[in-house]
Design a protein around this nucleic acid. Structure first.
Length: 110
DNA sequence: TCTATGACTCCGG
DNA sequence: CCCGGAGCCATAG
């Protein structure tokens, strides 16, 4: 089955593996799937993931740890609240100590 | 079928 | 530091 939306499904599968209290970036996911220039499409996949409760889209931020997708949640503070519940600190819409909480998809193979 | 847009990112100037 | 262009790929009109 080679549907043109396989990329979305691949993205969701990766996002589902992100542990609570951890975050990753759109670019890291895209790169992991073999499309290093398709970070924007990952964001699009996140927008379409709202129908799936098992896809923790709030754990995906941009390369700077900025909550660039917060506006797309049910509430502007939804994303930030979810992350805080998982033990992360958010200041000025950005994950504090982002690099230390960063989860690289490549860890799936370790 | 074509154009515009976007929860991105990299590069230049 | 700020701004614009390019590349990627799926979707809307």
């Amino acid at each position: 089955m080679s549907s043109n939306s396989d990329f979305f499904e691949q993205v969701w599968e990766v996002v589902r593996q992100i542990p609570p209290g951890r975050v990753t970036s759109y670019g890291a996911i895209a790169s992991f799937l073999g499309h290093p220039r398709s970070a924007r499409t990952v964001g699009y996949a996140m927008n379409a993931s709202h129908a799936f409760a098992d896809v923790p889209a709030h754990r995906v931020v941009n390369r700077n740890g900025l909550l660039s997708g917060k506006m797309h949640f049910s509430s502007p503070t939804e994303m930030e609240d979810q992350l805080k519940k998982e033990g992360l600190n958010i200041v000025d819409n950005q994950v504090v100590d982002f690099q230390n909480h960063f989860w690289n998809p490549e860890q799936l193979f370790k």
